[in-house]
Simulated assay, not measured.
Amino acid sequence: MREPKPYWRDVPLELRKQIEEKMVSSIRMATRVFGGYGPTATFRIFLEDGRTLIAKGAGQGSIAENWRVLPLEEAMYRDVTAINPISPRYFGSVSVDGWHLLLLEDLRNAKKVPPWSEAVALQAMRDIAAFHVRGLSEDGKVEAMAGKGVTDNWLNIKNNIDERNYFLGLFHENRNKAEAWLDAVIDTLIPIEGELMRPDQPWGLIHKDIRSDNLRFRNGNLVLFDWALACRGPLIFDVGFFFPSIEGEGGPIAERLLPEYKNEMASHGLEFPVFAEQSVAVATAGFFATRAGKPPIPLLPRLRYIQRLQLGPALRWSSNLLGLPTPPTLNFI
């Protein structure tokens, strides 16, 4: 099932004219582009001069969240130079009443993942580390990350019977084993999850939403898009929340990738305390644990599937890292 995105025929003529003026070429045709999980207006535009570009933003059918984050993403492309080597080229934006689109480099010929190879995943770690180092000088241009919804998920599962049942319902025939596992570990997980936002670890500019549908590899190097959630936060958050996506899609596990990232950061004098690694692993698992089992969201039809895909690896990583009992297998379907 796909998200309900607007068609090119819905785009006002005035907006099309603005695109042509900005790109100094007539538009030959345009098609909808799918990716991500929401009803963002996204088009691939074919210009008469042979170039293509991506127009993405908010328009007909866009939800309030699209409109809220769009100015934040535009400000990243416009004002933060640290993202330039790791983001699509930005050509500007166009708008009319009810529509606002960002014009970006088309990465259709860049490498997609999955499939993941170890070499590609390790390159991603090095490129994220390089971005984090560059971003240290510009983290004052973004808001600080909020902990709510990230550091309190295991606590919510313990205190809220509905949250607990949503999580346990993912295990179906293994529910009794999952309940025993949860009762055995949750009091260990709660305080560790709460340490994620501690200031005594490397903080800086983070993307905050790195996953396979938000990236490509251009000439062998990582390119990230969808910068709407970028903020100042614990640097390890970017890779910690990325690992379950890679493992869930058949790529290397966190234990193979995190050392590569840490080594790159250490070469720039940035070291991560033990609590930082543990807390991001536990917080990542808690984030997906409180979401993957909930009812589908009509405008985001694929979201729960992706969250289930990432929950299993996140539970495995956090349990292994802390030496906790192995969680039972969840029902993925």
Results as ranks from 00 to 15, higher is better:
Ser62Arg: 04
Ser117Asp: 06
Asn160Leu: 08
Asn84Asp: 12
Pro88Ala: 12
Val94Met: 04
Val113Ile: 07
Gly59Met: 06
Ile128Ser: 04
Asp139His: 11
His132Lys: 05
Leu155Cys: 04
Asp127Ser: 05
Ala129Pro: 03
Met76Asp: 00
Leu122Phe: 05
Arg78Met: 12
Ile54Lys: 02
Glu48Lys: 15
Phe46Lys: 06
Ser137Cys: 02
Val113Ser: 04
Val113Lys: 01
Val94Lys: 01
Ala146Met: 10
Asp79Ala: 04
Asp127Cys: 03
Ser62His: 04
Glu138Ala: 09
Ala124Trp: 01
Trp154Cys: 11
Met125Asn: 02
Leu155Glu: 15
Arg68Ile: 02
Gly149Arg: 05
Pro71His: 11
Ala55Arg: 04
Asn156Lys: 13
Glu163His: 14
Asp97Ile: 05
Asn84His: 09
Trp67Ser: 05
Ile63Leu: 12
Trp99Ala: 01
Ala82Val: 03
Glu118Asn: 11
Glu73Met: 07
Arg126Gly: 10
Trp67Thr: 01
Ala110Ile: 01
Ile157Cys: 09
Ser93Thr: 11
Gly147Val: 08
Tyr90His: 10
Val96Ser: 13
Arg126Ala: 09
Met76Ile: 15
Ala146Gln: 14
Asp127Ala: 03
Met125Tyr: 03
Arg126Asp: 12
Gly50Met: 06
Asp162Thr: 15
Val150Ser: 02
Glu73Trp: 06
Gly135Val: 10
Leu122Glu: 15
Ile86Ala: 01
Arg51Gly: 12
Ala55Tyr: 03
Ser62Cys: 06
Pro88Asp: 03
Asp162Ser: 14
Lys158His: 05
Glu143Phe: 00
Asp127Gln: 04
Arg78Leu: 13
Leu72Lys: 15
Val94His: 04
Asp162Val: 15
Met145Phe: 15
Ser117Leu: 00
Lys141Ile: 02
Ala129Gln: 04
Thr81Ser: 14
Tyr90Asn: 08
Arg134Glu: 10
Asn109Cys: 02
Gly92Asp: 11
Tyr77Ala: 09
Glu143Asp: 13
Gly147Asp: 03
Asp49Asn: 15
Leu103Trp: 01
Leu72Ala: 10
Val113Glu: 01
Leu103Thr: 02
Ala55Trp: 04
Phe131Gln: 10
Ala130Gly: 01
Ala130Trp: 05
Ile54Asn: 04
Thr151Gln: 08
Tyr90Arg: 05
Met76Leu: 12
Gln123Asn: 11
Val96Met: 05
Asp152Ser: 07
